[in-house]
Each structure stands twice: as structure tokens, then as C-alpha cells.
Write a protein that binds this DNA or RNA. Structure first.
Lengths: 387, 387
DNA sequence: ATGAAAGCGCTAACAA
DNA sequence: TTGTTAGCGCTTTCAT
């Protein structure tokens, strides 16, 4: 990938000594000529035939020292005369000067980049989380360095390793795995400020996520109001803390509400919609009695469940009700639209970033309550046939 | 695993000569002690109580020069004795040395970061495009710096300006607007290698996208086979080249196939699903005669159309057929599933990145053919009630 | 208020 | 094969 062109071939490479060299040195004989940066990509685009002006160029052109130039352009402009500052800025603009962020980073040991690692970018939920984080960062003038762990703890480890060594000022991570992600996360957090989002491993690294028990309770209350007496639970494999917490909460709350939830009716399947469908079919094939509702631990699962149910001619919500969790975009687009627990991703992202940047010195695990979004998958339609 | 522990406590850090200052200088009196970097974020996490070892520390510890150390750890390991190299690497590992990417970037004037700017991260289509690009970059060991233009040309300009000045080695852009995005893109491309993805402004900047006319033709052929004689076209506002191209192609092909496409039946609406529904209703309210099919220029529009149609009791596909474009994840999850033109985003991303990195010296506009994905929204079901 | 100079940590050209 | 050294471009003491 490096380059691919003979050295001195291009227009700007006039080597050596005397005359031109627009923005180079003082003009002294033998002074080395700067090469345009970005030369690496010459084949593609040949950008910047003229080397970019550096601070020293601005300084010389403005007749001041680099120190003064720096002060004029930076923000520490308290100890500089106003007219000097304006003059320098003028010159800088005329020359098209732009500070080199890498040099700046090296000097300041701060990059302005925040790394984010998610289990799977392809998952709509994480996509939405990424979008929220990007917004929070943008508001603070920070950049998002996004990486996809592709559901692999090994790859996640690799990514964290590469990010933790100075490329970013902070790290936002939704760990792949409840336990296996721990070592990598611990190492990363030892190198750079880190916050966990959505889910967290058991580690002394701050984590911000939805309040799972509250969410489950909210959903089950809703279902209870709808007359549900027996439920099945659709969970996902790839054990992450959230699932476990939600399952536990569901068990407890169901019992409390006097709802039946048989151990056999708690089923795990992978994130995929198809698998969810298969899992539903298994439940239905097994027990002659169909549960009144499927409590799905995320919206994708709910979509799979609904599809499978309808595929077998079981009406949703008339015969069986279904709830999701997360409130991804598509939950409102499916037919029937899906009743689900809305995760306040904006608040979660904002809180996480605040902690990361030290604006919020909360510590430990923070759980933000979601809100019920009541939609068709649990609403009896006016003239429904239903039970 | 690495550190996170008080200085001299661990097993490996036993310094050479005298007592303290684990990784500092040679031990000379008065030599300044390095401060841990990342001090800025102390409030949050206090990472790295021990300053990270630098190359010079490894060199000293290994008893070689920094040059040798650099050669041992870098890839230019041809001119170094194998055992020297191994020794240095050993020492580096023991010290927990990691190269400082920022210093490296400054020296090499290469960051290993590629910037990507999309009109809206929230849009599922762009999310999927981002995912593909991330994969391509990861394969090449590059990082993705992702930014959301939020449908604003001004913000896009701002983002590009910040990225183009040295933060990235290359830029992948899906421009917000067919014409208004031009100046910013031109400026950016003058600074750093740039490629346009999915859509492109009229500029001499490479662009890779789907073959729109081919896609439209494919869809209309399919519809024609299904007996469609009259269509309506649902386009999106926010004029980008793709839409215009697709509309033009639709007109031409419809005529060629003898399909009726009234000017009044070409409607624009914003990306939102709801608006698409409203637009459909407008068409239906106006003309007594309902078109045989709605050709939607993207899947989100198709979702809106289907929802609106069903809301009015018009059966899809029995009474009216609907096609989408893009094949976003959800096109396969809706009921009915949506017949659409699959965009080969993997190929598009790969080609774009290849061009960016100079592995592919194609230039100008590249159009990759999509493929028809036939699903329920145009498929007559076995025992359908019929037209 | 301004300037001179010391690095931030690394790589590569040049010497040895 | 290895070491010495000159920067990459910037910010920031420390003098003036």
C-alpha cells in the first residue's frame, strides 16, 4: 500500500539548491527541501502539489517567531497583543495554513479521538448506539474511531490492543462476552480511560446501560394488564450480562405476578431472526398448550418470533402477544408493530461519554430506566377475533 | 494483565543500576523524570501510574541504540542480526513496550486512519455501508474515523475540513447533496486522497456505486413479467444523483417496455417511512385507478408504501406490487418481505477502498451491478385472490 | 509581549 | 550490522 511511483518524477520534486521552493526554508544553500506529504497516495489523486505551509512558514511570512505564531493561532491568546494576533491569523488564512493535528497530538499527548468497539456493527441495536455516541462526541469536538469486534473475543482483544496504545484519548466498549472479554478490557482500561456501554464485564470499569430489571418488570406488568397468564421467554445465546440479568428478573417478576413461566419455556437462540423463529417452533411443537405471550429479550428476537407465529397461523397479538426489548428502528416498522422497552440510547451514550471525559465522576455501574412503548404486538385490535 | 499496579512491585521491572525511577533516565542526578501521559483524564481512571516505556528505554535495557531497537521492532528487519532482533523483542515484551502511534505517524506522515463521512448514520443503508467499509479497512489494518454529516451540507463541510488536514490518510465520502456538497468535497480531495461511495458529485473524484440504470431495468423487467402495466414511482427528495439517475432510467425503461408511468405518478418524499406512506395516499386519493405497482427508489420508501397500502386495505402483492432498492437488512424481515435490488455493498466498499489505497488505479465513476432479490412483495402467492 | 530552544517518540539517512 | 543524528510540526517553558 505504501507508494508506487518513482521518486523524483513529479512536478514538485525539484531537488536541491537554489531558486524556487515556494514555502521551503529561508533559502539558504543546501537546505533540504520538504517533500509534500501524502506523496504516498500519488497514484490515486496527487493531492497537494504544493507542500502545506507549516507554522514556521506563517511565522516567517508574518515576521514573527513560531512561538508567537503558535500563540496567535492557538487559544492561549491571552499573552499576545491583539493586533499581532490578528495579523498572524490573517497571514495564516492567506497561506491556507492548517495546524497539523498529528504534530499537535504528539506535543500535547492527546489525540481528540475516542475509540469505540462493538460486538457487531451489523446489529441494528449497536448501529444505533454508535450513532448516539458519535453525536455526543461530535458535540464535544471529538472524533469517533469505530471498530467492529465481529462477535469474536480474539478480534476484540486485537482491536483494543491496537487502540489502547496511544491512538485514542478514551475508549467506549460494549464487550463481546460477559467473562471472556474481561482480560482485554482490563488491560485496555489500564492504559486509557475506558467506559463500558450497554453491557459490562465484572471489572472496576464504569459501565452505563439500561436498567434491565426495571425494563423487564415494566414489560411484564404490561402483559399482566393484558391478561397474560403464561409466558415463554426468548433469550439469546452468547451469554452477556444483560441477558442473564433479564432472565433472572423475568423469573422473579413472573413469580411475583403469578405468571407461569416454565423452565422449558425459557429458550436461548442466537441473535439471528431465523433462529428465533426456529426456537419458537420448538416451543410450539413441544407443548400442546401455547403460551399467552412471548417475552423476547430483544427486538430482533421478537421479529423472529412474530414471523414464526404468523407462519403457523397464530395471530399476533390476538392469540399470542409478543414483546421486544431495545426499541430499534424496525420495531415501529414491522407489522404488527412491536411493543417493546425503549432504551434511552441518547442518555446512555451521553452519560458514558461524560464519564469518559471526566465531566461526570460517577463510578461503577449506572442503570438508566427505559420506557414502555406500547404497540400492536400486544394491543388487542378493536374488532379482533381473539381469545 | 499489563500493569495497573504500583511501580516497583511487579516481577519484571527490576532496573539496571541503582534504586528507583523504574523507566526513567540513566539515573543521572537532576535528569528530569517523565510524567505519565494521559494525565488529563486522571479524574476518570488514573491509568498508567507508571509512564510507558519508550523506544529509548527498550534500547537502553537491551544494550543497543534506538536505531537498532527500531529496526528490531519495525518491519525493516532485513538489516539486523537475527539474535539481536530477538533479544530486543524479548526486552520490549518484558518492558511492555508499545510503539507510540502518534510519534510514528508524525515521523511517517501516515496515520493509518481513513475518514468516512455519511449523510446520516441513522439511515440503515448507510449503517450497512459503514459496516462494509469498516471490514475492508480492518483487513488492511486501517482504522475507521467515522463522522455523521446529519444531512447538513454545512456540517459535512465542517467535518471534511477537520479531517482533511492531516488526521487521515484517505477519505471515503457519501456526499449529502448532489451539488451543494461539491465545494467541500473538492477542497477535501485536494488535500487528501478521496473516494466517493454510493453517490457522487460531479467532480474528478473517483466514485463507486451501484449501477442504477441496470438496477432499475432489472426491477422493471421483473415487474413486466409479473404482468404490471402501470406503475407509480416513489422517489426521495434531497436530490442526490442516484435518485435522478434512477428516475430517468425508470422513465426510459418504462417507455421501452410499454409500461405506463404518468408524470403525476412520480412522487418525491423525504426519506422517512411516514412520508412515504403519505405520498402513497396522495396518489391513491387522486387517481381513481390504482397503479399495478409502486417502484420505490429505496427500501425505506417501500416499507412506507406497503404500510400505507395495507392500511387502506389494498393487498400487497395481490392487488398492488411493490419493489424496493438497496436490500437493507429489514427488507427480508418485513411482511410481506420486499422484492428489491440488492446492492453489493461489500464489492462497492472493497472497490472504493482499493482505489483509495492505490491498489486499483481505476478512475472516474464505477458502477457495479446489483442483483434482483425476489420476495413476497411481488410474488403472487399460491392461492392468491388475484388482481 | 515576544523569541529562543527544548523536546513529544519515532524512523531513516548517513556514517562507521 | 549497528550507532549517531536529524528532523516530522507543534506547544511551552524560560529568558528577554
Amino acid at each position: 500500500m505504501e507508494n508506487g511511483h518513482p521518486p523524483g518524477a513529479s512536478t514538485d520534486g525539484d531537488e536541491g539548491t537554489s531558486p524556487p521552493t515556494v514555502l521551503s526554508g529561508t533559502g539558504e544553500i543546501g537546505e533540504p527541501v520538504r517533500t509534500a506529504q501524502g506523496a504516498t497516495y500519488t497514484r490515486t489523486m496527487t493531492p497537494e502539489p504544493t507542500p502545506r505551509p507549516r507554522l514556521v512558514d506563517v511565522a516567517r511570512e508574518a515576521g514573527v517567531s513560531v512561538a508567537t505564531a503558535s500563540r496567535a493561532l492557538g487559544k492561549g491568546s491571552e499573552l499576545i497583543r491583539a493586533d499581532t494576533r490578528d495579523h498572524v491569523r490573517q497571514v495564516a488564512r492567506r497561506l491556507g495554513y492548517r495546524v497539523n493535528p498529528v504534530a499537535r497530538s504528539l506535543r500535547l499527548s492527546t489525540t481528540g479521538h475516542i475509540g469505540m468497539v462493538v460486538p457487531s456493527i451489523g446489529n441494528p441495536f449497536f448501529m444505533e448506539l454508535v450513532a448516539q455516541v458519535e453525536h455526543c462526541l461530535a458535540e464535544r469536538g471529538l472524533n469517533l474511531l469505530l471498530a467492529d469486534a465481529r462477535m469474536s473475543v480474539a478480534h476484540e482483544d486485537h482491536l483494543l490492543r491496537s487502540l489502547e496504545s496511544g491512538a485514542v484519548d478514551g475508549l467506549v466498549v460494549a464487550p463481546c462476552h460477559e467473562t471472556y472479554s474481561t482480560p482485554a478490557l482490563e488491560r485496555a482500561a489500564a492504559h486509557v480511560p475506558t467506559v463500558q456501554l450497554d453491557r459490562g464485564v465484572q471489572l472496576d470499569v464504569p459501565m452505563v446501560g439500561v436498567d434491565d430489571p426495571h425494563g423487564i418488570r415494566t414489560l411484564l406488568d404490561h402483559l399482566a394488564e393484558r391478561g397474560v397468564e403464561r409466558i415463554a421467554l426468548l433469550s439469546n445465546t452468547g451469554s452477556n450480562v444483560s441477558s442473564v440479568t433479564r432472565v433472572r428478573a423475568a423469573r422473579a417478576v413472573a413469580e411475583e405476578l403469578g405468571m407461569r413461566l416454565d423452565p422449558d419455556d425459557i429458550i436461548e437462540c442466537s441473535f439471528s431472526v431465523d433462529e428465533a423463529g426456529a426456537a419458537v417452533n420448538r416451543v410450539l411443537d413441544r407443548s400442546g398448550a401455547v403460551p399467552d405471550a412471548f417475552l423476547c429479550l430483544n427486538d430482533l428476537l421478537a421479529i423472529g418470533a412474530i414471523t414464526a407465529l404468523r407462519g403457523r397461523g397464530i395471530a399476533v397479538p390476538e392469540r399470542v402477544q409478543v414483546t421486544g426489548f431495545d426499541d430499534i428502528q424496525f420495531a415501529a416498522l414491522m407489522r404488527p408493530t412491536i411493543t417493546t422497552l425503549h432504551q434511552p440510547l441518547d442518555a446512555i451514550a451521553d452519560r458514558g461519554v461524560s464519564i469518559l471525559m471526566g465531566d461526570d465522576d460517577s463510578t461503577g455501574r449506572i442503570h438508566i430506566e427505559g420506557t414502555l412503548v406500547e404497540r400492536e404486538s400486544t394491543r388487542r385490535r378493536p374488532g379482533a377475533v381473539g381469545e
